[in-house]
Design a binder for these strands. Structure first.
Lengths: 127, 127
DNA sequence: TAACAGTATGCCCATTGACGTATATTCCCC
DNA sequence: GGGGAATATACGTCAATGGGCATACTGTTA
């Protein structure tokens, strides 16, 4: 009689504006915390905590890359998660906030595939 | 800079197991509180409160029909709501709890269209 | 090893939500 | 008007959550 809990867990993750924005950005590919900070323009602690929340519930995966934590959607999402992420992406297409986020992200990291942390070219270290 | 709030509101409604079951049942058609009580096997106050929650956020509409309150999904749902309800319905298809709910509902009210409250034939009053 | 950048965590506070018990409300029928 | 059925609300309690501030952690560089 449990069941349906996977879905509830997903919706619990989706029911916060900040987390929604994070997940939406992640549909574009893996990103690091500083990316999120710059795109969302929210304090580091807020971003980090929400990512931790998502991670603890397995909606995102994290790997360290030198100093940076790279966050990504699960490599093998459940059917439910995949469906809801697709739905989110669809809804986001017509929303001003999500579109603006996407625009800032694109300006920041024009090429997402293999994007270096914080938009710096791979191998170049911070100032 | 508001935006995205419609979605958050929807997800806030979806992130509870009981509300999820209620909404899922409502995708079959309008129902009254006693239907929910019998299908979910949950106390009246719990059902009623969650319906109130959903109603206050405009995810369901309610109309009185004699002694019974009939609840239904919005006649004109937003794009976001429609998308998420479809997604929910899709996810529910493979979940034991939702399937069991549906089975109990069908036994209770074989014909949903114009279903009388509490499965009694229209016009027949309670014992 | 010291300094620093990137990130996470502990603590505190305010808000929200879920649940149960008891009680109120609304409508129908006698 | 009284009684009863169906439904909603008021209260109290407890747990979870969001946010900020300060601080800790981790890896890199000097």
């Amino acid at each position: 009689m449990l069941g349906a809990m996977e879905l509830v867990k997903i919706y619990e993750c989706l029911c916060d504006r900040t987390r929604l924005r994070l997940l939406h950005l992640l549909t574009q590919g893996p990103l690091c915390v500083c990316h999120f900070q710059e795109v969302l323009r929210e304090p580091q602690v807020k971003i980090s905590k929400h990512l931790g929340y998502l991670r603890s519930r397995r909606l995102v995966e994290a790997t360290r890359r030198q100093n940076w934590m790279m966050y990504a959607l699960p490599a093998h999402p459940s059917r439910e998660l995949a469906a809801n992420l697709a739905c989110l992406q669809d809804c986001a297409r017509e929303d001003a906030v999500f579109r603006a986020d996407l625009a800032r992200l694109r300006k920041l990291a024009p090429t997402i595939a293999g994007a270096a942390p914080c938009g710096r070219p791979a191998g170049v270290r911070a100032r």
